[in-house]
């Protein structure tokens, strides 16, 4: 049973373990931007890499207990390729949908990464988009953030356009280069209103419900939040990207906790160091100097997902890893 402390339910968020290391391919991630996790803990990670290393652009399949499964797709413009991947989501059949904000298309792969099809049309009319960023799939519907048109669109999974809402601005219900999106179990829509430094909540008709946060670095304030996720308790997880933290808000939007990163070296990280004994020593010296703070901390966390079994996975963009937390309702002695 939880109790109350200073007006909030006293739930703790404990660090569990990490997955990954910085790597252009194979057992690591390079500037990952988003991930999707299936019911069995299989995680799909989109690697954006950078222009002079197009070999780093692809998706990695691994598990949350750090087994490497494989990788798929490559940099390019051909069907099945990725150029500037931004976001991904799984449907109930286990197919992966990937939004690409340069190619203006949604590409669909099966669970093993085989290319199936793509759809999408550039523009600012209904059923067109300009730089799709966040996507979320519920049943047979995709909610898509059409970022440069400052709006949210609703599509069938085959790309058939259904509806849209939002416009440019900073008032309630208005958006400025929105990015991530998610839905809670009641069907409410949460949008990371990136350049307005806030999260907005809408109902499925697109009517504004609530705004959480403002610019800043204090509790409940954001600096360019880019991803949002809500668990079954209604707690809201936000990647407060340029503040290098994840904030957790209670269902009513009050600040509950912040995660700044608690990384411990992962298995892949260890095998990297084991073949580089000089770097083991350098790392030890560095830890002696800063107490391990640098390696623990998030650096531009960019995606947060709550798994079926209650794990909270945070994709740590600059460090190429996933830090996994557990929401502890029962007390755990650290």
């Amino acid at each position: 049973m939880s109790t109350h402390l200073f007006g909030l339910v006293d739930v703790a968020f404990n660090y569990s373990h990490s997955v990954g290391r910085n790597e252009f391919n194979g057992t690591g991630f390079r500037n990952p931007v988003d991930m999707a996790i299936d019911d069995e803990g299989k995680v799909y990670v989109l690697n954006r890499s950078y222009e002079n290393r197009p070999d780093g652009v692809h998706a990695t399949i691994a598990t949350l207990d750090e087994q490497f499964v494989g990788e798929f797709s490559k940099f390019g413009e051909a069907p099945g390729d990725m150029y500037w991947p931004t976001s991904c989501a799984l449907d109930s059949a286990g197919n992966l949908y990937v939004a690409d904000e340069w190619l203006n298309r949604i590409t669909i792969y099966d669970g093993d990464g085989e290319y199936l099809r793509h759809w999408g049309e550039s523009g600012d009319g209904p059923g067109q988009f300009n730089a799709p960023s966040g996507i979320a799939i519920v049943g047979d519907t995709m909610w898509l953030v059409d970022s440069k048109n400052h709006r949210v669109q609703n599509y069938g999974l085959d790309g058939s356009f259904k509806s849209q809402f939002g416009e440019f601005g900073s008032g309630n219900g208005q958006l400025n280069l929105p990015w991530g999106i998610c839905l809670d179990k009641n069907g409410l829509i949460y949008v990371a209103d990136w350049r307005n430094d806030r999260i907005q909540q809408f109902n499925q008709a697109g009517e504004w419900q609530a705004t959480f946060g403002m610019s800043g670095s204090g509790p409940g304030q954001f600096k360019r939040p880019n991803a949002v996720c809500v668990d079954d308790d209604g707690d809201i997880y936000v990647c407060d990207r340029e503040n290098d933290r994840v904030q957790i808000l209670a269902p009513d939007g009050r600040f509950r906790a912040q995660l700044k990163g608690d990384h411990q070296i992962s298995g892949w990280g260890k095998s990297k160091l084991n073949s580089n004994p000089d770097m083991i020593r350098q790392r030890t010296m560095a830890i002696t100097h800063d107490g391990g703070a640098y390696e623990k901390a998030f650096a531009n966390p960019c995606s947060v997902r709550v798994t079926e079994n209650g794990q909270i996975a945070v994709l740590d963009h600059t460090r190429g890893r996933i830090q996994v937390y557990v929401k502890e309702k029962e007390p755990v002695l650290l």
Binding site: E23, T27, F68, W268, S271, K272, N274, S275, N276
Partner: peptide, 11 residues
């Protein structure tokens, strides 16, 4: 490259 592999590559 390093004598020992790092799991999937070498440094």
């Amino acid at each position: 490259r390093r004598v020992g592999d790092n799991g999937s590559g070498t440094d």
